[in-house]
C-alpha cells in the first residue's frame, strides 16, 4: 500500500530508516520543523536547519526513492526563548515561499505560555499571508486543555479549519476535534502517545474521514515504521483497504496539497534515485560504488 508519512523528523534518523520506509511503501515524507533536543542559541542555527530541510534532507530522501517535503516554523518550545524568537520570525517569510514547504508548522502550544500564544498567533497570520495550511503541535501535558486553547485561538483568528491539522491527538481529543472540520492527527509511538491497537479502536469507532496517522519519529524512542505497522493492524481488524488508503495516503496528501505547492501526481512514482549525485560535495555512499547500490 502507498503511504504518505505526514510527520517524521528525518533530520534525526539514519539511512536505514529511509531504506526500510521506502520498502514498507512510504513514498512521501513531510518533515515539520521543530526543536532539536536542545535549544538553539542564535538565529544562525535555525537558518542552517531550515537550509538542511529544503536542501540536504530533500536530496538524501530522494537517494532512497522517497519524496521529501517540509513545513517551516518557530516551534512552540523555542518560542519561549528570547535569544531567537523574534529573529526567527524575521527570516521565516523567505522560507515559507520555498517550493518544498507545504505548510506552517509545527506551531501551537507546548507549555501553554503567553509567549507561545503570541508566536502561534503571529504564525497563523503568516500561514494566511503565504496561503499555506498549518500543522499544530498540541501539548503533551494537560493535553485536553491545550487542545481546546489551540482551537479557541484559531476560531478567534477566523482561520479556515479545513487548513488546520491538529496533531498528537488521542481518544479524548477526537471527541473535541471530530466535528470541527479540521484534520485530526495521531502520532503512533512504541510506548507513549498512541499505539497501533488504540488507533485501530479509534478508526473502528470514528472512521477515517479527516484523520491522519504519523510516526512523529525523531531522536527519541520512536519508530519510523509506525504508519505501515498501523496499516497491518487496521487490515487485521477488517478495516477495508480503501479506508486504510484514505487514512495513510489520500488524507495527508489532500491536506498538504491545499497550498498549491506540489502536484500530488508527482507521488505516483518513487523519487528518482541517482546515487552518483552528491549534495554540497556530500553523498550517502561512504565509498560504495554508486552503480552497485
Amino acid at each position: 500500500m502507498r503511504i504518505f508519512e505526514p510527520h517524521a523528523h528525518m533530520f534525526s534518523r539514519v539511512t536505514d530508516d529511509y531504506q526500510r520506509m521506502a520498502l514498507a511503501g512510504i513514498r512521501g515524507i513531510l518533515e515539520p520543523a521543530f526543536w532539536l533536543g536542545q535549544n538553539r542559541t542564535s538565529v544562525g542555527s535555525f537558518v542552517d536547519y531550515y537550509d538542511t530541510l529544503i536542501g540536504w534532507e530533500r536530496f538524501r530522501a530522494r537517494q532512497f526513492g522517497v519524496h521529501h517535503y517540509c513545513t517551516m516554523a518557530l516551534n512552540p518550545r523555542e518560542a519561549n526563548d528570547d535569544r531567537v524568537n523574534d529573529a526567527v520570525m524575521e527570516i521565516l517569510p523567505r522560507y515559507l515561499e520555498k517550493s518544498s514547504v507545504l505548510g506552517v508548522g509545527e506551531i501551537g502550544l507546548d507549555d501553554q505560555t503567553k509567549k507561545e500564544e503570541k508566536y502561534f498567533i503571529a504564525q497563523v497570520e503568516l500561514a494566511r499571508k503565504h496561503d499555506l495550511p498549518i500543522l499544530v503541535h498540541t501539548p503533551h501535558r494537560d493535553k485536553k486543555q491545550g487542545f481546546q486553547r489551540c482551537i479557541d485561538i484559531l476560531r478567534d483568528l477566523d482561520f479556515d479549519m479545513a487548513r488546520v491539522l491538529l496533531d498528537h491527538g488521542n481518544e479524548e481529543t477526537i471527541k473535541i476535534t471530530r466535528d470541527l472540520g479540521c484534520v485530526s492527527g495521531f502520532s503512533i509511538y512504541p510506548f507513549t502517545k498512541m499505539d497501533e491497537a488504540r488507533m485501530v479502536q479509534i478508526v473502528l469507532e470514528y472512521g477515517v474521514e479527516r484523520m491522519v496517522v504519523n510516526s512523529a519519529a525523531d531522536w527519541g524512542v520512536s519508530d519510523p515504521l509506525m504508519v505501515p505497522k498501523t496499516v497491518v493492524k487496521l487490515r487485521q481488524a477488517g478495516v477495508p483497504d480503501a479506508d486504510v488508503e484514505r487514512l495513510v495516503w489520500h488524507n495527508p496528501i489532500e491536506f498538504f496539497a491545499q497550498g498549491g505547492r506540489f502536484d500530488p501526481a508527482e507521488l505516483d512514482r518513487p523519487a528518482d534515485v541517482d546515487m552518483r549525485e552528491t549534495f554540497d560535495g556530500n553523498s550517502v555512499l561512504r565509498g560504495q560504488d554508486p552503480d552497485k547500490t
Partner: peptide, 10 residues
C-alpha cells in the same frame, strides 16, 4: 526578491 525567487517555478 528572497520571497519571489523560490516561487518562480510554480
Amino acid at each position: 526578491v528572497p520571497e519571489l525567487l523560490p516561487a518562480l517555478p510554480r
